[in-house]
Amino acid sequence: MSAAFLQVEGLKVSYGHIEAVKGIDLQLHEGQITTLVGANGAGKSTTLLALSGLVKKAAGRVTLQGQDLSALPPHKIVSAGMVQVAEGRATLTTLTVRENLELGAYTRRDGRAQRMDDLERIYALFPRLKERADGLAGNLSGGEQQMLAIGRALMAKPRVLLLDEPSMGLAPIIVQDIFRTLREINKGGLTIFLVEQNVRQALKIADRAYVIETGRIVLEGSGQELLRDPKVQDAYLGG
């Protein structure tokens, strides 16, 4: 297999005296969907927050195409090409849908014409957002807000898209739509790192998968391998 696009080595995160992530190693390969699954409190979201620079690492190294991101502040990590869609969407409810999307491009230094082209691509991906472009983001449904959060992240032109629990709180039919869209985005070449409690859905679309328990990686393999793994079936898929 080719060298890792995103390499995480020995990542540790502590909250006070509690070690939430205990020296994990991860590899993401370019153009693939990689998922990190596990129970509530296992360390999934903390891992993403550490990669994004939003919580402090106690130890570890994060490199993207050889560039060391470990000590960079969050906005520099975004500029380097790693962009996170936060758990809970974090849409700016008093701004319009269009304003939210345009804010996603705040680190870019290219011209307005290129940003507008990308905005139209987001609208093609999520037609509902185009319909609601001039309305307040706070008036969107949960599923529409998730679409907006993904669209806003894509406006930053990421090389790696990090997603934290995109299915949380959404109706099953909306979850299917979101996962279908993630596959479509990935087919366009974007590398995706997905943290998700909906283990079955995540493993179905993942090229590579890791299982985390109490801050440690306990299993890894292809998505299909882990779907068939008896330990994963017993623990997360109801046998």
Rank of each mutant, 00 (worst) to 15 (best):
92 L>W: 09
115 R>T: 10
102 E>Q: 08
88 G>I: 09
96 T>H: 00
110 D>H: 13
105 A>H: 02
111 G>L: 13
129 L>D: 04
107 T>V: 14
135 G>S: 13
129 L>I: 07
131 E>R: 06
116 M>H: 10
136 L>E: 02
102 E>P: 00
137 A>M: 01
72 L>H: 07
134 D>L: 09
129 L>G: 07
123 Y>R: 12
135 G>A: 13
72 L>D: 10
84 Q>A: 01
108 R>H: 05
128 R>P: 04
129 L>A: 06
120 E>S: 13
100 N>T: 02
94 T>E: 11
130 K>N: 08
107 T>Y: 01
135 G>H: 14
117 D>S: 12
78 V>E: 06
137 A>V: 01
113 A>T: 14
116 M>W: 05
68 D>C: 11
95 L>W: 03
103 L>V: 04
125 L>C: 05
76 K>Y: 04
69 L>H: 13
86 A>R: 05
131 E>W: 04
124 A>Y: 01
119 L>K: 07
85 V>N: 05
104 G>L: 02
81 G>N: 08
85 V>Y: 01
85 V>F: 03
86 A>S: 06
114 Q>V: 15
135 G>V: 05
118 D>C: 09
75 H>P: 05
84 Q>H: 04
130 K>F: 04
102 E>W: 01
79 S>L: 14
71 A>Y: 06
128 R>G: 02
136 L>W: 05
93 T>D: 10
69 L>I: 12
122 I>T: 14
132 R>V: 06
120 E>T: 13
91 T>A: 10
121 R>M: 12
137 A>L: 00
74 P>F: 01
124 A>D: 14
91 T>S: 11
133 A>I: 05
99 E>S: 02
121 R>P: 02
104 G>I: 02
96 T>K: 00
94 T>C: 03
91 T>E: 08
71 A>R: 15
83 V>S: 00
125 L>Y: 03
132 R>Q: 15
80 A>W: 11
78 V>L: 05
113 A>G: 06
98 R>Q: 12
137 A>W: 00
86 A>Q: 09
83 V>Q: 00
119 L>R: 10
87 E>H: 04
110 D>W: 09
79 S>Q: 15
132 R>W: 11
90 A>Y: 10
106 Y>R: 00
92 L>Q: 05
69 L>N: 12
69 L>P: 05
83 V>D: 00
91 T>K: 01
93 T>V: 10
136 L>P: 00
109 R>Q: 14
95 L>T: 01
87 E>A: 09
75 H>D: 13
71 A>D: 15
73 P>S: 09
127 P>T: 03
113 A>F: 06
119 L>E: 08
106 Y>Q: 01
79 S>A: 15
82 M>R: 07
80 A>Y: 10
72 L>E: 12
78 V>I: 14
97 V>E: 00
133 A>T: 02
100 N>Y: 03
94 T>S: 14
107 T>H: 04
82 M>P: 03
121 R>Q: 15
117 D>R: 15
84 Q>N: 09
122 I>K: 10
70 S>I: 11
110 D>E: 14
98 R>G: 00
128 R>K: 12
103 L>P: 01
111 G>D: 15
112 R>Y: 07
122 I>D: 12
82 M>K: 08
121 R>Y: 07
113 A>S: 14
86 A>P: 12
127 P>H: 03
107 T>K: 06
